[in-house]
Design a protein around this nucleic acid. Sequence first.
RNA 1: GUCCCCGUAGCUCAGCUGGUAGAGCAAUUGACUCUUAAUCAAUGGGUCCAGGGUUCGAAUCCCUGCGGAGACACCA
Length: 452
Amino acid sequence: MAGRIMSQRIMGAVSFYELQDAVGRIQIYAKRDEICPGEDKSMYNSVFKKLDIGDIIGVRGFVFITQTGAISIHVREFVLLCKSIRPLPIVKEQNGKTFDAFTDPEQRYRQRYLDLIVNPQVKDVFIKRTQLVNTMRNFLNEKGYLEVETPILQPLYGGAAARPFKTHHNKLDMTLYLRIADELYLKRLIVGGFDGVYEFSKDFRNEGMDRFHNPEFTQMELYVAYKDYEWMMNLVEEMVETVALALHGTTKVQVGENIIDFKRPWKRYSMYEAIEHFTGTDISNMDEAELAAFAKKVGVEVDSSMGRGKLIDEIFGETCEAKLIQPTHIYDYPIEMSPLTKKHRSKAGLTERFESICGGKEICNAYSELNDPIDQRQRFEAQLELGKRGDTESMVLDEDFLRALEFGMPPTAGLGIGIDRLSMMMTNSASIQDVLFFPQMRPEKKDTPNEQ
RNA sequence: GUCCCCGUAGCUCAGCUGGUAGAGCAAUUGACUCUUAAUCAAUGGGUCCAGGGUUCGAAUCCCUGCGGAGACACCA
């Protein structure tokens, strides 16, 4: 077998090392007189004993159990496969206590390879992330939906309210944007006649960074024709429950101080109900002035640009979101906040949209897709107005997307689910940086060549 | 973008009201034939994040910058 030396205990003519490979660690035992049967003991004294922690070696021998009961490999031959010329941080452990842990987040994220070597539990998080994606992919494939790929470089960005990254194509001499969502392209495919399409989509948003936000992040977006948002709520429950079971064998997952149970069915509140539930106040019939007064009362900073929808959204964020620990669907969002969402079939001013919240954080956003091209044009125009008033995250009008809708898109349910967020939840990680191999960091050295 | 906290050896950290830079592990040398945070002895190891200021004297006090963490704002 082969692996990296992680610890050495040399006892003169006998030594014990620990070798680590992709799956774990095992102790190896070597005896001078077996490695060097003749008079020349240099292979042991000058080579084996001089190996360093971090070196990668191959060994041949047999398995046995030491007097202290440790399963070990009794080494007959060994070969140095790769020398490590940098010292490895040494993490030691006894009785569950860890000594000299390699914990500096900056070094862990910048040198993830090192983090993975010395903190093997870090690997588990990333293995779980991949299992999560695989589980979702299998789940969606079994339902007959088609995994597709759509452009990352887009001439117009759309599908979400966010600031994009901008780049330039030399040959075409045109501005291109890195996608902030793949929604508008996937809906074009529904127009084109697919019944269900999905994409695991790397998206890019040129905004602030914190422990929940990285400039590039992964979303899974799914669109299914002839379905609506209620149907989608059931699908989300089923899919997330399946993920929890696949990763943990149970629907109960420890997240921070809470145990979150993803078992179906989840709680459901309309947005108005949720606000009433947590504040005792029914705001559904308030006018804008009353809403503004109530928002102030619950601690929202109100300014005059806020419309009814924004106020409701802020009130919800302030009073409800953090208190929703167990998985809950919040549905029927104000129309102002949802320019791509179908109007509610019966309630004026609302849309058929829901978000699923658990652990006090949103994990997905879904709706009955707006498929009326005239309404969609008006919504885009309203967004343009917002843009003129200085909203840097307002949407731009996508004429080709409207043309597609004008050919007719069947009623469709759409879903966007944050893979990083869900991974954090499913691996009990406090920071998005813990579920990304290489989170975005500032350059290490100031003098690295950079434009400007 | 704002507010706080942090930056000392390869790793984890100590360093008091300013007075010659420290420990454990790792490294090097030696002892030790079933150890497991192996042990024992010896040795080497520093741009105290960077720059400036105060001072006879700065790791320590002040200012600026860089990097990181956290909170707030915005977003997923």
